[in-house]
Simulated assay, not measured.
Amino acid sequence: MQVFRLDDLDAERAANEGAYLRFLRERNMSAGLYALDAGAIDPQKPHDQDEIYFVVSGRASVTVGEESTAVARGSVVYVPAGVPHRFHHISEDLRVLVVFSPPEA
Rank of each mutant, 00 (worst) to 15 (best):
F4W: 15
F4R: 10
R5H: 13
R5K: 14
R5Y: 13
L6G: 00
D8A: 15
D10A: 09
D10G: 00
E12I: 05
E12V: 07
E12Y: 02
E12C: 02
A14R: 09
A14N: 02
N16Q: 15
E17M: 05
E17A: 08
E17I: 00
G18M: 05
G18W: 01
Y20P: 00
L21I: 03
L21P: 01
R22A: 02
L24M: 10
R25P: 04
R27W: 02
N28W: 13
N28T: 11
N28R: 14
M29F: 15
M29I: 12
L33M: 06
Y34H: 06
L36D: 04
D37Q: 13
D37K: 15
D37A: 12
A38H: 11
G39F: 13
G39T: 11
I41N: 01
D42C: 09
P43D: 08
P43G: 04
Q44E: 15
Q44I: 09
K45Y: 12
K45F: 05
P46W: 07
H47Q: 09
Q49Y: 01
F54S: 12
V55P: 04
V56F: 11
V56C: 00
S57H: 02
G58F: 00
G58N: 02
G58R: 03
G58S: 06
T63V: 10
V71S: 01
A72D: 15
A72S: 15
S75L: 09
S75M: 10
V77E: 05
A81P: 10
G82C: 07
G82A: 10
V83G: 00
V83F: 00
V83H: 00
P84R: 04
H85N: 08
H89C: 10
H89F: 04
H89L: 08
I90R: 07
S91M: 06
S91V: 13
S91G: 01
E92W: 11
L94T: 04
L94F: 06
R95W: 07
L97A: 14
L97K: 09
V99R: 02
P102C: 10
A105T: 10
